[in-house]
Amino acid sequence: EETGVRVELAEEDDGEKIAIKLWLRIEDIKKLKGKYKDNEAIEFSFDLERDVPEDVAQEMVESGYVCEGDHKTMAKAIKDRVSLIKRK
């Protein structure tokens, strides 16, 4: 499903790190509610043992990086990427 958002690794995952750096990349602004630039990327750290995707997305909303209306879309994108990383 195309959401307009993609999360990718910002650094090589060696399988050892607990906290990883990720990029939340805006790919299609028409599919989102907030005002973003095409190909805008937000770099953030995610602790694989402690962080919760919904909470991280909420922090982005509170910091003004993400529109409240896009919270669920961002949280799902983060959750999907993190579950792929954890499965390795």
Rank of each mutant, 00 (worst) to 15 (best):
D55F: 06
K21Y: 00
K35T: 13
L9H: 04
K30P: 07
K76L: 09
I26T: 12
K79Y: 11
V66S: 00
A57D: 01
W23M: 15
I20Y: 06
A10Q: 07
G69Q: 15
E12N: 11
R81I: 04
R25M: 09
D70T: 01
E59Q: 14
V5R: 02
K17W: 02
K33G: 07
R87P: 03
E68W: 06
V7L: 09
V66A: 03
K21I: 02
M74V: 15
E8S: 06
K86S: 07
L48I: 12
K31C: 08
F44Q: 09
D70W: 02
L32S: 07
D14L: 08
E62W: 05
D55W: 03
E27Q: 13
T3A: 07
L32C: 07
K30G: 14
V5A: 06
K79A: 14
R6E: 02
R87I: 04
N39P: 07
E54A: 06
S83R: 10
K35W: 04
I18T: 15
D28I: 03
L22C: 13
G64Q: 03
G64L: 01
D28Y: 06
E12R: 09
D13S: 07
A19R: 15
D80R: 07
L84A: 13
V5S: 01
K86R: 10
S83A: 13
K79T: 09
F46K: 02
K72H: 12
K31V: 06
V7K: 04
A77D: 03
N39S: 09
D14T: 09
I26Y: 11
Q58F: 08
D47Y: 01
L48S: 03
I20F: 04
R25A: 04
G69W: 07
R50A: 08
K17A: 14
R50H: 13
Y65N: 07
G4N: 07
L48V: 10
V61A: 02
A57G: 00
I26S: 12
K76G: 05
K33L: 01
C67L: 04
A77R: 03
D14P: 08
L32K: 06
M60F: 06
K76I: 03
Y36H: 09
V7F: 10
M74K: 00
G34L: 04
E8L: 05
M60C: 01
E68S: 13
D80C: 01
C67D: 15
V7S: 01
V66G: 02
R25Y: 13
A41T: 15
I29R: 15
E27C: 15
E68D: 09
E43N: 11
T73W: 11
V5L: 08
V52L: 10
K86D: 06
K76M: 09
K21L: 00
C67K: 06
V56E: 05
E27I: 15
K31W: 05
Y65P: 00
N39C: 09
E62T: 11
E8N: 04
V61F: 02
I29L: 12
Y65A: 13
G34A: 02
I29Q: 14
E40A: 13
D55C: 10
K17V: 04
D80G: 01
A75T: 10
D51Y: 01
N39Y: 04
K76S: 09
A19T: 14
E12C: 04
K31I: 04
A19L: 15
I85E: 05
G64R: 02
A19P: 10
K76W: 02
E62L: 09
Q58M: 13
F44D: 04
V52C: 13
E12H: 13
C67M: 10
D51E: 02
L24M: 06
K30N: 12
A41E: 11
K21G: 02
E27S: 13
